[in-house]
Nucleic acid binder design. Sequence first.
DNA 1: CTTGACGTTACAGTAACTGGAAGGCCTATA
DNA 2: TATAGGCCTTCCAGTTACTGTAACGTCAAG
Lengths: 141, 141
Amino acid sequence: MNIGEAAALSGVAPKNIRYYESIGLIGPAKRAANGYRAYDETDVRLLGFVNRARSLGFSVNDVGGLLSLYQDHGRASGDVKKLALEHIEDIDRKVAELQSMRRTLKDLTDRCHGDDRPDCPILDDLAAGPDDRPDTVQAAE
Amino acid sequence: MNIGEAAALSGVAPKNIRYYESIGLIGPAKRAANGYRAYDETDVRLLGFVNRARSLGFSVNDVGGLLSLYQDHGRASGDVKKLALEHIEDIDRKVAELQSMRRTLKDLTDRCHGDDRPDCPILDDLAAGPDDRPDTVQAAE
DNA sequence: CTTGACGTTACAGTAACTGGAAGGCCTATA
DNA sequence: TATAGGCCTTCCAGTTACTGTAACGTCAAG
């Protein structure tokens, strides 16, 4: 099958399939007589693997590691689990950071009346930094 | 003061100050006789503003918008609040996405014994997709 | 007078694509 | 048979927000 069909079946856009090939994440595709890339079900399965791993937030680099483990039938499941657990920790760090930003922004927007008047505690805080407003309620969680 | 001191006071690295200047986020700095960039307290305050906005996750583009509002004394606080609220929604979307990834990964790692044996439900799932394992428990929240 | 810290510019590289140009191939229809 | 369209090819540029490096100028201290 051509790249378009492989893309539709695997969920990876043609452009990205070529990109993954160009960076060596997946091997070079076989070619039909006309020079078009030719894929079979095995290739589609592999592309689907890449797609699912990427959508779980694994970096392209990580996916490379997962692919070698996937293709190595003697691999230890502990290696895979380790990668996945590290990735969970990454996610937890990102979530914590985002939630911290969110708390600050929520606090700021709650204190901003948000009408036509120019007074705006959001800008005031950004200009001065929270340290310059010691009267602010720093609610504990 | 030189760029190094302005950097230390504002929390923005010298390299990033030059970068922000190069993309026009901040205006070109005055120059001392020797060609060095020269900053005063007003500049430092502005850099600090940029720094705090960036650390709250506003894009450089957003910061540009906030800066114009900051420097426009007739602006409406509603404009600022709108930007901030949109940003909170962005954050909420990102957190939801990350938490969805985390749930899937946690489910996978819980089912992976993670020892020297090659069997690994993580790789199996990535290879086949969750749809091919209809016996999996899809816990409600 | 040299050393080291600091400053300057300019260019390349990062992650992971995305868009676009310019052209080749394939099939169907008028 | 001509042509229209849709898919395929390669290659290059742009995106975001920096970061690294090179090659150079300047300044203060010992």
